[in-house]
Design a protein around this nucleic acid. Sequence first.
RNA 1: AGACUUAUGGUGUAACGGUAGCACUACAGAUUUUGGUUCUGUCUGUCUAGGUUCGAAUCCUAGUAAGUCUACCA
Length: 556
Amino acid sequence: MTTEKEERTLNFIEQFIEEDFAAGKYQGHVHTRFPPEPNGYLHIGHAKAITVNYGIAQRYGGKFNLRFDDTNPVTEDTEYVDSIRNDVLWLGAKWDNECYASDYFQQLYDFAEKLIEKGLAYVDDTPKEEMEVMKGDPNRGKPGTPSVYRERNIAENLDLFRRMKAGEFPDGARVLRVKGDLASPNMHMRDPIIYRIKHAHHHRTGDAWCIYPMYDFAHGQSDSIEGITHSLCSLEFIHHRELYNWLIQNLEIFPSRQIEFARMNVEYMLTSKRKLMKLVQNNVVTAWDDPRMPTLAGLRRLGYPPAGIVEFCERAGVAKRDNLIKYELLEFCVREILNKSATRTMAVLDPLKVVITNYPAGQVEMLPIENNPEDPNAGTREIPFGAEVFIEREDFMETPPPKFFRLSPGEHVRLKGAYIIRCDEVIKDTGGEITELRCSYVTNSRSGSDTSGIKPKTVIHWIAPQGAAQAEVRLYQRLFSDPTPDSHEGKDYLDFINPNSLQVISNALVDAKLMDVAPGTQFQFLRKGYFTVDTESQPGKPVFNLTVSLKDSFKP
RNA sequence: AGACUUAUGGUGUAACGGUAGCACUACAGAUUUUGGUUCUGUCUGUCUAGGUUCGAAUCCUAGUAAGUCUACCA
C-alpha cells in the first residue's frame, strides 16, 4: 500500500472542508448540490459547477443533490427541467436526491412566519421605486431610510402576510422584508425582500401559491432542509453570505456553509443567457444545440465527450481569482479521450484523382488496416485498393516548399496501409487546375511486406472509389474571432463572429460502410481530425461534424 | 466614493515561514506506415514600496490593478 493518493494537493474548498472536520463539524460528512434554475439550457459554466460539487461529494464519499431552484414561476418551465436532468446525467453526475425548492414552499412560509413572530421581518407597502431610493447609496456612505412600515407590530405583520398568501393583494402591493441593518455597507443586509406577491402559475405547484420566496430566502433554507454541508457557489454570491448565515442563525436551522469560488471563463465562449439567446434569434447559429454553442447540448452535438469536459473542468482548477481558461486546454482534453476511443477511418475531404499507371486496370485487392493503433483490441478491417484512388488535394504540391513531406512531382509517398507511389505526371485542365495525378506504385512495397528499401518522408491517407461514398462534412471552428468578444468597449460581441465558423463540404469521400452510422458515433478521419455523426444524419445520408482537428506541427 | 474579493511563467493551478513545482501552450529532439499518439529536453513567473524575521510567494502596512455588491432575478 502506498499513499500515492495523498500527493494531490487540496484546493481551497477541500481545505475548508477538512478544517470543518477537524473542528468537529458535520461528523465528517459531505453533502453538496447543484442548484440550477429551470429557466434555460446548461452550458460549459454549469459543467464546471457540476464538476466541482459532484467531484467533492465523490472525493469525500458524500452525497450530491440535484436541486431545481424554482422560486420564480414567471421564468421557469418543466421543459428546462428535462433538459437539465439529461445534461447532468450525460456529464456522468449521479444525484442522490432530486429536489425542488418549490417542494419546500410550505416550510419556507413557516420560516417566514417564525421570523415575523421573532420581530425580525415586516410587511412593507412602500412602492418599489420609493424603496429603491430608500436603500441609500454605499458609494456616498448614505445609509438606508427606514420604511414607515418598519415598526408595524407582530400581529399586524402576521395578519398582512397571511392575507398576502390568501391572495388579497395584487402583484407588487406589498412585500415581506427582513429587519436587517439599514446602515450596513452590505446592501443585502439593508432590509432585503424575502417574499413577493406573484399571481402566476408555477410549473409544479400550479396556482397553490401567489407569494413566492426570493433567492435569499429559498436557497440557503433549501440547503439547510436538505442537510447540505457545503453550499458551493460562484463569487458573486459572496455578499449574500452574511444574510445566508444570519437567516440560518435566526431560523435556528441546520448550518450549511456557503463557500464561493470563481466561475470558469473560457476563451472564445460566452455564457450569458441573454447573449446566447441573441445568437439564436439573429440566426448566427441554428439553435441552442448548434455545435458552435457553448451549451452542453451544443458541445454534445459537436462531439465533445463528457469525460473530456469533466477532465477540462478539473484541470482548470478551483480558486477565487478571475480566470480565462485557454481554449487549447479544452481541445487537449477532448483529443485525449477521442484518441483512445475513436475508430480510425480514411476520408478525403477535397479529392484529387490519382491514376496508378502500372497497376492492372480493373484489379482490386483488399488490404488490412488498423481500426485503432491506440487500442490493441480494436482489430483490423479490410479496404479495397485499385488502379485509381483519391488523395487529399492539399497533400500534393507541384512546387513544394522545403519542409513539404507529401507528394510532389518525382517524389515518393506511402499510401497508408498500401503501397509507395511516385508522382510521374500532373494533368491539368485548360484553366490550369490540377485534375489528375499519374503515379506509379512500387510493386514490392506493400504494407507489411515491404522489401523495396524506399523510405518516403511521410504517409498520406487515400480512398479507392470501390470503397467510397459521398457524405456531408461540416467543418466547425470557434464561433468568435476574439477570445473575449464581450470585453471590448464600444464594440458588441456580435462584431466578433468568426465568418468561417462553419464550412460545409457536401461531397467528401468517406468509407462506404459509414453510410448508416448512428448519430453520435465518433471517428478519427486519419490525419484530419475527430469527427462525430451529427443528429441531422439520415440513413444513407450521414453528416459528419468536425469535433476537433488533429494537432498539426507542419509549418510551411 | 463605501464594503468585500483577488493578484505566482503566455494561460491555469500548487507551494500554508525554509531550494517556486505541475499541467496546457510554444520551441527543440527521439520514436512513429497518421507532420497524430508516445517519450525527452528548453524557454519564460512570485504586482509595487516599506516592515516583521536568521529566512517572506507566504505574515503586517500602504499603494496599484482587476473583479463583485446597491433587482419584488437566481
